[in-house]
Amino acid sequence: MIRLLPGILAMAAIVVASNVLVQILFGQWLTWGAFTYPLAFLVTDVMNRVYGPGPARRVVFAGFVVGVICSFVGTQIQGEFGPLVTLRIAMGSGLAFLTAQILDVAVFDRLRQGRWWRAPLASTLVGSTVDTAIFFTIAFSGALAFLEPGNDVSWANESLPLLGLGPTAPLWLSLAVADWGVKLALALIALVPFRLIVRRMTVQVA
């Protein structure tokens, strides 16, 4: 477990930072948390490459526990419009993180024998897509209002042009597409640190 400590600490730091930065808007469609959270996939993929799928899943579970704690703390803090973290956001965040990260581990492991960039890129793209779909649907879709009847998400279901340019769609879809776009961009950028970190850690492990 000691060998996994750097990965666990990095994952915990990313989860905590993302939970804080998601409260700060970046432009019209994003929050600052959108730029830190995708790094969780980088940590998972590095752990998977260096130590294998089992240890990678343990790092994911540690991040999930930290996320649950952050969500609980957020439910106790009152903001301008109520708790900083609603039940639907907590549910969406936890389920999205765990599902997407475990899927990332599985896809990476299936492709680990290919070119060095194939596994991290494919697993992160798949995981990021699933993560975005699960979180935004559970947290904001009007169709799931029964999950938390007291939580008014009508603001997220206001019909507006997609990203201000496309066809009319609920606001939360624009938020989801913008978030997904950042994840895809960072999946490509993260290939550079992935390669460098894996090389260094492989030498240390050897």
Rank of each mutant, 00 (worst) to 15 (best):
1 M>D: 13
2 I>E: 09
6 P>D: 02
7 G>A: 14
10 A>E: 03
14 I>S: 06
16 V>D: 09
18 S>V: 00
22 V>E: 02
22 V>S: 08
28 Q>S: 14
29 W>D: 01
31 T>H: 03
37 Y>E: 11
38 P>W: 04
38 P>D: 11
38 P>C: 03
39 L>M: 13
44 T>K: 12
44 T>C: 13
48 N>H: 01
50 V>P: 15
50 V>Y: 08
50 V>R: 06
51 Y>F: 15
52 G>C: 06
53 P>Y: 00
53 P>Q: 03
53 P>V: 00
57 R>C: 10
57 R>H: 07
58 R>V: 12
59 V>Q: 05
60 V>R: 12
61 F>T: 07
61 F>E: 13
63 G>A: 14
64 F>S: 14
69 I>K: 01
71 S>I: 00
72 F>R: 01
74 G>L: 05
75 T>L: 11
76 Q>T: 15
76 Q>D: 02
78 Q>W: 01
80 E>K: 14
81 F>N: 15
82 G>A: 05
83 P>Y: 11
84 L>Q: 07
88 R>L: 14
89 I>Y: 11
90 A>C: 08
92 G>R: 04
95 L>F: 10
96 A>I: 06
96 A>M: 06
102 I>S: 04
102 I>D: 00
102 I>E: 03
103 L>Y: 01
103 L>K: 09
103 L>S: 14
104 D>M: 01
105 V>Y: 03
106 A>D: 07
108 F>E: 03
108 F>L: 02
110 R>V: 12
111 L>E: 02
113 Q>W: 07
116 W>R: 03
117 W>Q: 10
118 R>C: 08
119 A>R: 01
120 P>T: 06
120 P>H: 10
122 A>C: 15
123 S>E: 08
125 L>H: 02
126 V>N: 01
134 I>N: 00
134 I>K: 10
134 I>C: 09
135 F>W: 07
140 F>H: 06
142 G>T: 04
153 V>W: 08
154 S>D: 13
154 S>N: 13
155 W>D: 02
160 L>A: 06
160 L>I: 15
163 L>I: 05
168 T>M: 12
168 T>Q: 12
170 P>D: 05
171 L>Q: 08
173 L>M: 14
175 L>F: 07
179 D>M: 02
181 G>S: 12
182 V>A: 10
186 L>R: 04
186 L>D: 05
188 L>I: 02
188 L>K: 02
191 L>N: 09
193 P>N: 09
194 F>I: 04
195 R>F: 04
195 R>L: 08
196 L>S: 15
196 L>I: 11
196 L>A: 15
198 V>T: 14
198 V>E: 09
200 R>V: 01
200 R>I: 03
201 M>Y: 09
201 M>T: 04
202 T>L: 15
203 V>N: 08
205 V>S: 15
205 V>P: 04
206 A>F: 03
